[in-house]
Amino acid sequence: MAEKPEELSLPVASVSRVINDALPSGINVSMETRKTISKAASVFVLYTTATAASMSQKAGRKTMNANDVMDALTDMEFPQFKETLERLLQGEYRQTQKKKKETNTAKKQSTGGGGDSKKSTSTPQAQNTSEVVELSDSDE
């Protein structure tokens, strides 16, 4: 765990990218402002994480989930963020994860049925691939 608050800050470059995407073109933001926004965002993330961890602990779980974060936002009196995050989580994030899974399954099936030249050199890999394909088939 980090000892100093400075170790818990978000990278200024990443925050700058978000700032630039949010503002209309032609607007300049000073480096001091970027650093200030980065610190504020870090504090918000830490506060949200601590609140969500508390929610999961109250529920008797050791693993924090997305619902804990959503409940934390309500508890922190930021319900306006909750709706947007739920929409993004349900829409974009889960669709992206589903597409990745489908792509990986398709790649594994296409390499699994064809040439055995790669598989014959590594038996454990071939067994691992078939196990993954079986798991993905049972999910559908």
Score class of each variant (00 low, 15 high):
Gln80Gly: 06
Val18Met: 08
Ala53Ile: 07
Thr49Trp: 05
Val45Asp: 01
Glu83Pro: 02
Val45Met: 01
Phe78Thr: 07
Glu102Gln: 07
Gln95Arg: 05
Val45Cys: 05
Leu23Met: 12
Thr49Asp: 06
Thr33Trp: 00
Arg34His: 00
Asn67Ile: 08
Ala52Asn: 04
Ala106Trp: 08
Arg17Pro: 00
Asn20Tyr: 07
Asn65Ile: 13
Phe78Asn: 07
Leu46Arg: 01
Pro24Thr: 02
Gln109Ala: 13
Met76Pro: 09
Gln80Leu: 06
Asn104Glu: 08
Ala66Glu: 15
Tyr93Cys: 06
Met70Glu: 11
Leu73Trp: 03
Gln97Arg: 14
Leu89Met: 14
Met64Asn: 04
Ala72Pro: 09
Gly114Ser: 09
Asp68Asn: 09
Ala50Asn: 08
Ala13Pro: 00
Leu85Ser: 04
Phe81Cys: 06
Asp21Phe: 02
Ala40Phe: 02
Leu89Gln: 14
Val69Asp: 09
Ala72Tyr: 08
Thr111Ser: 12
Ile19Pro: 00
Val45Pro: 04
Ser56Lys: 07
Ala72Phe: 11
Asn67Gly: 05
Val69Gly: 03
Ser117Val: 07
Glu86Arg: 05
Leu46Cys: 02
Ser25Phe: 10
Asp21Tyr: 00
Arg87Tyr: 07
Thr63Tyr: 12
Gln80Asn: 10
Arg34Met: 00
Gly113Ser: 11
Val12Trp: 01
Ala22Tyr: 11
Pro79Ile: 02
Asp68Gln: 09
Ser54Asp: 14
Leu10Ile: 03
Thr74Met: 10
Phe81Asp: 05
Glu92Asn: 08
Gly60Lys: 05
Asn65Val: 14
Val43Asn: 06
Arg34Ser: 00
Ala72Arg: 10
Lys98Phe: 08
Lys99Gln: 15
Arg94Phe: 11
Gln80Asp: 10
Val12Met: 03
Lys82Trp: 03
Thr33Pro: 00
Val29Gln: 07
Gln57Asp: 09
Gly26Trp: 03
Ser117Cys: 01
Ile37Leu: 03
Asn65Gln: 14
Pro79Arg: 00
Glu3Met: 14
Glu7Thr: 04
Thr48Val: 02
Asn104Cys: 11
Ile19Ser: 01
Lys100Gln: 14
Lys108Asp: 15
Thr84Ile: 15
Ala40Gly: 04
Thr103Val: 07
Phe44Gln: 04
Val18Gly: 02
Glu83Asp: 15
Gln90Met: 15
Ser56Glu: 07
Ala22Thr: 09
Phe81Tyr: 15
Asp21Thr: 08
Met31Cys: 03
Ser25His: 11
Lys98Gln: 14
Gly112Asp: 15
Asp21Met: 05
Lys35Val: 01
Asp71Thr: 13
